[in-house]
Nucleic acid binder design. Sequence first.
DNA 1: ATCGAAATCACCCGAAAGTGTGAAAGAAAA
DNA 2: TTTTCTTTCACACTTTCGGGTGATTTCGAT
Lengths: 159, 159
Amino acid sequence: MKFGIQLRTKHQEILLYCISMSLILFLLKWLEAHFIVFNYRLDFFIGAIAIIFTVLGIWLALKLVKPKVEIRIIEKKVYIDNPGKTEINQQEIVKLGISRRELDVLNLIAIGLSNEEIAGKLFISLNTVKTHSSSIFLKLDVKRRTQAVEKAKRLNIIH
Amino acid sequence: MKFGIQLRTKHQEILLYCISMSLILFLLKWLEAHFIVFNYRLDFFIGAIAIIFTVLGIWLALKLVKPKVEIRIIEKKVYIDNPGKTEINQQEIVKLGISRRELDVLNLIAIGLSNEEIAGKLFISLNTVKTHSSSIFLKLDVKRRTQAVEKAKRLNIIH
DNA sequence: ATCGAAATCACCCGAAAGTGTGAAAGAAAA
DNA sequence: TTTTCTTTCACACTTTCGGGTGATTTCGAT
């Protein structure tokens, strides 16, 4: 699994900025330690270099910047050629091998009850509900109860 | 215009940039004023300057340029057996005070995704998804995601 | 210029959900 | 009668969910 450690990543920018500033200062100190001399024409030359590479940096950033993504959920309508009523598909239930009790549990899951509430309503234990729901997920080939509800409704197993 | 608004919000960064530039220029002048001899590698020094100002240029561009927006579409399949009667109730959404982002999350919950999967799909953190879903449950007056889906479908907030 | 809403994120903690294994009783089918 | 299926339950364990709190950033409106 992932690390449990979560850092406040928003401060990373500032941290990065501080580090780079420190690096610059360190560089200048290093240069100073090595007795580097400037003449006056060099000053102008360095200015030009600075401007050029600033522009270069800006250009580079514009080229490489990752575009900010905006998510838009659109609904793709899929029309089912099932004119008229919404009959429960018994064949599908049989085909998937879903038992009566499992269907009971599935229906109660679909209306948003918790496992404990389902257990209370069907007069069975919490563990039994878990067993049923697990086998439902297995038969429907899903991982979560929300997925199970979605798929079951799509297959007209429940409504 | 947009640029003016951005200037206002980013004026701290500009200030910071100016200060750092001034600091660097001051340091250079100081070094020059102290007759530090530049006996060693001139090209090395220029390279350092180039790198520094490239980085500063990149940083400046990233800070000031309005991010490019890339719209990413997530298709959500809606299975309809009775076309023509399934309109999304916008008034209900407004009445409940459900925001656009919360609606995104709600739609992804409805198709059975886990919070972590939603976070991956919307490019936000798991904690943010939790915050959104919590406020959804509050606004819909439900306790669980399955209930939220059930109620939202009943209110025609989602399909 | 100030303020509020929306969106983002972190962290802690407890509750609920889900997995895996095993088992027992009753009903139906072979 | 034996076998198989369904339903029931337990228990340990991991993962996910949800509540609560607090914080930052951005945007729009006043």
